[in-house]
Design a protein around this nucleic acid. Structure first.
Lengths: 339, 339
DNA sequence: TTGAAAGCGTTACCAG
DNA sequence: CTGGTAACGCTTTCAA
């Protein structure tokens, strides 16, 4: 049914030359009669010939395809990372195959298996935060397939990682709140082993310690960062005595929910409770009050991950190095913490 | 460098049988000695053999890959569509290659060329709204490559289209505002030839006409729907005399911007000006006031497009039919229009 | 029941 | 300068 694309054979037949001659002419390799070459190139252009990637791939064992394993896509942070990756990939003639894990390990294992069966040239993955089993990553490494990890920092996986300065930026936002005379700072976060939230929690603790503010475990709420758990978390926080005077959400969605619930309960923001988030979503400056947030270099994470991957594939850097690239975040102060 | 995956040849060698025997055993085709078969299957499982998709693809001229052409991805609406597509594709053993056009025709043409060169089995595209040249689509059709269009409805491209009931839902939101005694309803929208905004504008006009409200062209602002143009559009609207008493934004981002600007200028929402949007983004219920919006069946658009594509590929439906699948939207009424 | 061979489209190598 | 051939990994057809 599908009309067949032109092949070298077609061109060879029409011009009464051999397939190898056509191949050579088109890739300008080896000696060749300029006349013959010109004719071949012309016909090829006319027929819109382009080598079948399946055939070349079969030959040099390359698919020109990179597998991406990412938790979600309906999320500005991750979709921006993806676009950063795509921008580099498409410029270099690579295609991306994207798998979504929902931050769930079972999906992740399946995704990686599928990608390896698809014979991708490399895998760039964000391991799910609950990760406790690393065999599927060792599988990638054992097969000498280039692997780049992004956003999460599993020490158990010895390879390149592209991450952000979670601890530092968390210290920064916490100190910002402290400078605004907040003393009971609550933190709604994801404390799963590999979650960025866990590192941010470390930063938070360091900031408190530095300023001699006692850590109150009551103010730390572990959640999986969806809307309903965030609602619940906030309601619980607002029952604590004494009340928290600030809430940090592990992302802007959580912070947004916290603000809404607090306002509904009659608290003024930021006067009664200051609120801050992470990731600086486009909507954050439009909330009421506008939301203070730690901006993440999402696009850059994507670009950088893909650049490293390409270097690995091209053999410019070894594929078995355990190295961490840390990109900088930037605190964006808005009305939700101005008091 | 990369460790070679096991091939039929490897298995054949180890078991001292021919490649064809192994192939037959594994796919349970043709007569074969149950003993031999068992041995082969066992070894294959142990070695984690899986056929090289490049080789099979070369043989049956299939890549098991579907190309997606989509305007953006950092946008809940489009990323949800994409996930809908992915959910169906991954269940059917298809991979998706996604290209982003930024709603720009030049990018779109390049994307489609690239996809065709990659030999995708089918293309699902959202043509850019400014589209005036359709040759690249005719190119797809001429090559007998299955094509599905989504979200936009170009009459010039005779193929399956998966769209939403833009006119109807626009009538609905406009009538909703009219029922709230709004008479000067402004519309910030994208009027490019293929934009959904154009159809929504039609619906808007029909609703006004039905209720004998004169159309005031001053209240229609054409924009490309980014934040800065929306800011400008709103500022202009708020200078009109008499003032608009409602603003419809062509998406929730626009409506969000309009609300913010109007509030900053001292207008009360919805009392002075009611506001509504399209697409019902997750943040919309968290705005102040919560935003009335037309919910779009994004996930369904994605699923449906891919289902149709698979049917085309499988030959269950002809690939040259000009048919439109219309999915229903649902108006979500919130505080921004409750007056 | 099994094996050999052709072919998918391409490239690389070796003769001529 | 050009053509033939082998090879990539797989499926299918034809013989044995």
């Amino acid at each position: 049914m599908k009309k067949e694309p032109v092949s070298l054979k077609d061109i060879a037949k029409q011009l009464n030359v051999s397939i190898s001659t056509v191949s050579r002419a088109l890739r300008n390799k080896g000696e060749i009669n300029p006349e013959t070459r010109k004719g071949i190139i012309e016909l090829a252009k006319k027929l819109k010939f382009r080598p079948n990637p399946l055939a070349t791939g079969l030959l040099n064992k390359k698919t020109s395809t990179i597998g991406i394993v990412i938790p979600e896509i309906e999320n500005y942070f991750y979709s921006t990372i993806l676009r950063g990756m795509d921008s580099v990939a498409s410029l270099s003639g690579y295609r991306l195959i994207v798998s979504y894990t929902n931050d769930n390990q079972t999906n992740e294992i399946l995704a990686i298996q599928e990608l390896m069966l698809s014979r991708v040239d490399g895998i760039i993955a964000c391991p799910s935060s609950e990760l406790y089993d690393f065999t599927h990553y060792y599988d990638i490494i054992d097969n000498n397939i280039p692997l780049v990890i992004f956003e999460r920092e599993p020490e158990e996986i010895p390879t390149y990682k592209v991450v952000t300065d979670n601890i530092k930026s968390s210290i920064e936002v916490t100190e910002h709140l402290i400078s605004k005379r907040c003393r009971r700072i609550a933190f709604i976060t994801n404390l799963e082993p590999l979650a960025a939230g866990r590192l941010r929690y470390e930063g938070y603790k360091m900031a408190l310690k530095k300023h001699n503010i006692p850590l109150d475990h009551e103010l730390i709420i572990h959640g999986n960062m969806n809307i309903s758990t965030s609602v619940e978390a906030t309601i619980n926080l607002l029952k604590k005595k004494p009340l928290p005077d600030a809430i940090i959400g592990n992302n802007d969605m959580v912070a947004m929910v916290a603000m809404k619930i607090a306002k509904e309960k009659g608290f003024r923001i930021p006067q009664d409770i200051a609120v801050a988030g992470f990731a600086d979503e486009p909507f954050s400056s439009f909330l009421e009050p506008s939301l203070t947030s730690v901006g993440q270099p999402a696009y850059l994470i994507g670009m950088k991950s893909l650049e490293i991957m390409l270097q690995m594939i091209n053999g410019d850097i070894p594929i078995n190095e355990d190295k961490k690239i840390v990109l900088e975040s930037a605190l964006v102060i808005r009305d939700s913490t101005k008091r």
